[in-house]
Simulated assay, not measured.
Amino acid sequence: MTTILSGAPGAPAYPHAVDLDALQSCFDVLIDELSSQPFSVGALSSALAGGVSEAAAILRAIPIQEGRLLERGIGIIADVNPDLVVLTQNLRLPVTKTALDLVEKNDPKHFRSLTLDADTGGRKTYTPDLVIVNRKTKLAHVIDVKRSLGSYEISRINELKSRMLAAALVVPDLLYRDHHRLVAEEVRVVILNAGNQRSDGAGGVWPLSDLDHLVEVGGAGRAIGMLRERFHARIDENWKLARNASARPKEERARRGASADTDDANGSGVHDPGAGSITEVDQQAGRSQIRIGFARIPRTGTG
């Protein structure tokens, strides 16, 4: 078996590695799916024509779709490791008062070996983005993917980690009962921060670049970074096409206005006795319309 060095700093060697050529088609399908409807050229053109409110709605959709992109992209990369089982459905985990008390009042080493019944009732729940289980090591990771933690206060991050730890107490029972007798002897929680502004390896906050460690696949962090870049590049490309399409009707109207002004100046039109002053205003309006469009850098050496 060939051992591949991971691209993550300080990572050990892993027996599995990302083959970007092999994943290319999967990434293409994912990007097409998540960008086609909300960020197609047609949708963006309609938003630009609709004004600020519609354009703002499109911009708000970008973080949502990027979150889905990251979750599904991680799942695709994790499949490179045949020892892993990736779960994304039916993951609503109960967060009971008993579990929260255990987490908040004890050091993790005191409840590390505990597990609670998944049927335990409670109004509070936590839904992770992914649960990844290694069948060989029987280690499960409860994963929350964040595009950015830049706006999160420390107290909010700590509250999230407490909920995740409390929910993790039911994961062994849930996996065995609802997922084909899947066994987890240890459960760890991790927040993956795609923004890479904050990291706390010991405290369960990892930059997305350390994805290699999580899925034990060399180059995983680089691959997910490339997926994000290509997703944003697709949106940027569609935005430029939509912007150009939106500008063309204005330029066409400007050309028609200029043509009408020229006809009037040559006497080809029909005017009332006050035509001289009206034509002058029309010409000014035509010139104003012609100048509507994209700014251009003046070229040196031209008249």
Rank of each mutant, 00 (worst) to 15 (best):
V189H: 09
L87Y: 04
E216I: 13
V85W: 05
N193V: 01
Y14F: 13
L5W: 09
A8W: 07
K250R: 12
R222I: 08
G218M: 09
F294C: 11
T302F: 06
N193L: 04
R147E: 10
R234P: 00
R222A: 12
A8H: 02
I132Y: 04
E54V: 13
R188V: 09
F111D: 06
L211A: 04
T125Y: 06
G301E: 10
V281N: 00
L114C: 07
R234G: 01
S199W: 13
V41E: 11
D173N: 10
A260M: 15
R234L: 03
A49C: 01
Q89Y: 14
Q89F: 14
P82D: 12
G286C: 02
R112T: 07
E71H: 09
W239Q: 04
G218P: 09
D210G: 00
V133E: 03
A118C: 12
R253A: 14
H16C: 12
S35K: 00
S148A: 09
A184H: 04
L34M: 01
V86D: 00
H213S: 03
V217H: 04
V187C: 05
R181C: 01
T262F: 14
G67E: 00
R230Q: 09
D210A: 08
V85T: 11
S46R: 10
T88E: 08
S151N: 12
P172T: 02
Q283V: 08
V281Q: 07
G303I: 11
N193M: 07
A258N: 13
L44D: 06
S36G: 12
K136G: 10
T2K: 13
G50R: 00
A245F: 14
Q197D: 15
A43Y: 10
L227W: 01
V18H: 03
P298L: 05
V171P: 08
L93C: 12
T96C: 09
D173I: 05
R255E: 14
V95H: 07
P9L: 00
S162C: 14
P249N: 06
N238E: 09
G301I: 10
L139C: 01
Y126N: 07
N90R: 14
P128L: 00
A11I: 03
R256H: 13
E185A: 03
A260V: 14
L116W: 02
R163S: 15
R291N: 15
A43N: 10
E252K: 14
N81Q: 02
V41L: 09
K161R: 13
G286Y: 05
N90M: 11
Y126S: 08
V145Y: 04
D236G: 12
D236R: 14
R256T: 12
N244I: 06
A275M: 11
K146S: 07
V190I: 07
G219V: 03
S209D: 05
S277T: 06
A265M: 14
E216N: 13
L214V: 06
I154A: 15
L227N: 01
V80K: 01
H141F: 06
R147N: 14
G73R: 01
I74C: 10
G225H: 03
E159C: 02
S162G: 10
I4H: 13
Y176D: 04
R60P: 00
G67Y: 01
G267Q: 06
F39C: 04
T302D: 08
G73Q: 01
Q65I: 01
L139N: 06
L102V: 11
V142F: 03
I143N: 00
P128M: 05
R287F: 14
W239Y: 12
K136I: 11
V29C: 02
F294M: 10
R198Q: 07
S36I: 00
P249E: 08
A8F: 02
